[in-house]
Design a protein around this nucleic acid. Structure first.
Lengths: 154, 154
DNA sequence: CTGCCTGCAAACTCTTTGCACGAAT
DNA sequence: ATTCGTGCAAAGAGTTTGCAGGCAG
């Protein structure tokens, strides 16, 4: 999905919800779609300010739930104090697992289609309907432990 | 595992690590093993103070990582701002998934032995060695949505 | 005795919120 | 014109830490 197509989707999402397409919201949105890796709210503030320096931290935090609600942004919580985000270029539906490298602090994502099967199996036994699921693996980098450098590291 | 056996394990863990078996640490430990459900650090402070009212919040937070390090306590982070804990009576090794009910706020645990298989499969492709894994499902309570009451709710 | 451990309170990190001004429809 | 949205700064929640005194080994 091109950034223009994505921006248009975001605009129409805002309109449909009766929300206003302010310059700040659009700057924040554009900033997310310029990223190829996971990023934090704090980083997003920087990225958005490079586009429109009137963007404030409060507006970033207020816009994040709007964007995740539009399914154009995914939230990734690896339990590290701060949350990570990533543009959802593929549209929706893909079940992914995260692999977090303890040496690189890098987050990899891998498709894990069986997750939804597991979720429904397990939940139906409890009389529950699954809403979200996450599968996360934290791991050590073999190369880093042996050679002292991680090939994926900056 | 009985509480006495568990306390003895904790004592020897402390000794082995060169740590002191203070009355506060033992009170906090006993408090964890009296619980049958998940609990927060804040709740643990209350429980521990009921045993030894000299226990402070700081000591609870300083003792938690020691206990998780001894594998007698498991930490469960469902991404809700605060972490949950639960005594590990079964010993170690069991791979469990959490199912969190959005209506009850209750945390269920279910054995998910295939998790470790998935972790190693996925990680070996990236040259990583898995350290920890978590599989979590957040779900709605069918009964609550239909009748307005959840049978599992207090 | 020695130095690890403690309680207290302040600091910290990430996120949310109240308020009065400003801008989108 | 109306509201909704904004920036600022302060508040919040959960957790961590510096310090002076206290107790285990």
């Amino acid at each position: 999905m091109s950034i223009d197509a994505a921006r248009e989707k975001f605009r129409s999402f805002l309109t449909k919800k009766g929300l206003r397409a302010t310059s700040q919201r659009l700057a924040i949105f554009d900033a997310t779609f310029a990223q190829t890796e996971h990023f934090t709210a704090d980083q997003l503030l920087d990225y958005a300010r490079a586009i429109d320096d009137s963007v404030s931290r409060a507006t970033v935090y207020r816009t994040l739930p709007i964007m995740t609600g539009s399914a154009l942004l995914r939230e990734v919580d690896i339990g590290s104090g701060e949350k990570f985000y990533r543009p959802n270029r593929e549209g929706d539906g893909t079940q992914v697992a995260q692999v977090v490298c303890l040496d690189c602090d890098k987050i990899f994502e891998i498709s894990a289609p069986f997750m939804s099967w597991y979720g429904s199996t397990v939940s139906s036994k409890l009389g529950l309907t699954p809403v979200t699921q996450r599968l996360q693996v934290s791991a050590q980098c073999d190369a880093f432990r042996q050679t002292g450098t991680c090939p994926r590291r900056g």
